[in-house]
Design a protein around this nucleic acid. Structure first.
Length: 273
DNA sequence: AGCGATGTTCGCCG
DNA sequence: TCGGCGAACATCGC
């Protein structure tokens, strides 16, 4: 589930495995992952190879759900990853260990490989020359972990949209998706369809701190639901799941075109008390 | 066998 | 202008 914590864990993984090794070859299985300004996909794959082969990864950055790898090119060049709904990375040596659904494979001079995995082939991989410019073009808001309380208050105040929608809106806050917005709202005891302008100043501040806590805790636990604290909803976030705190059956409600899971006992609807 | 799924983009509507 | 909604994208697992 590649949201901010998942991508951060992948960034650290890549940072500790695949840096400073010359890339000797690149195999592209799913060309659709590489965006193309023209309609013909072949030249972009060739261009991607030309930009990458012979280079090495030098450092990494993350903004929201996007991962940037700076390469040792002439001038600044970054490889950008987006993992869609099902993507991931795996660094391995023996080709027998090549993961299923590998879509792009980087070969390093030391005999290791880095696989970009994507079961559903939704995702993106491209070369850019500046992170700030890219963030601007993609109209991404500040990264959720960099967002200040003041910025968060401004995002919420006077906004009629639902809180969950706002948390997931990448142009306002970058990095939070369906799963972590549910977790944040569960921890903050807010009903998912609550509108931002129904939250008081204190509640907004509480939500802000909860957002940071949830994301940081998830990163500390390797974004692995099995390692999450006992009171996290994420491992129970499915049909038939129960609240880890009070045992109530979880409910599901439509928000935008997605589903939110929540505890009807602990996430009260506004005006009901 | 059909439906739902962690993501983004785009167009339509009130 | 803002926000909600739904389709499209690809494809697998339940």
């Amino acid at each position: 589930m590649p949201e901010l914590p998942d991508v951060e864990v992948m960034r650290r993984y890549l940072q500790s495995t695949a840096l400073h090794q010359e890339i000797t070859d690149l195999e592209v299985g799913a060309a659709r992952l590489i965006p193309d300004e023209e309609t013909n996909q072949d030249p972009t794959v060739k261009q991607l190879k030309a930009d990458i082969i012979g280079r090495s990864f030098e450092s990494s950055r993350r903004h929201g759900k996007w991962l940037f790898i700076r390469m040792n090119s002439e001038g600044e060049k970054f490889l950008v990853f987006h993992f869609g709904m099902t993507g991931g990375l795996n660094y391995f040596k023996d080709m027998d260990d090549e993961p299923e659904y590998t879509q792009v494979l980087f070969h390093f001079k030391n005999g290791y490989q880095l696989a970009y995995i994507s079961q559903r082939k939704l995702g993106e991989l491209e070369i850019i020359d500046g992170v700030e410019k890219f963030v601007d073009q993609k109209k991404l808001g500040p990264d959720a972990l960099d967002l200040s309380l003041e910025e968060f208050k401004i995002l919420c105040e006077g906004r009629h949209a639902m809180v969950k929608t706002t948390l997931m809106d990448q142009s306002k806050i970058a990095g939070i998706g369906n799963v972590y917005s549910d977790e944040i709202l569960f921890q903050a005891k807010i009903y998912p369809r609550t509108q931002c302008d129904q939250l008081g100043g204190d509640k907004i501040e509480e939500l802000y701190h909860t957002m940071k806590d949830v994301l940081q805790t998830a990163i500390d636990r390797q974004a692995d639901p099995e390692q999450f604290p006992q009171d996290f909803i994420t491992p129970h976030r499915h049909k038939g799941g129960h609240c880890p705190i009070c045992g109530e059956a979880l409910k599901r409600v439509q928000v935008g075109s997605r589903h939110a899971y929540y505890c009807p006992n602990r996430q009260e609807k506004k005006g009901k008390h």
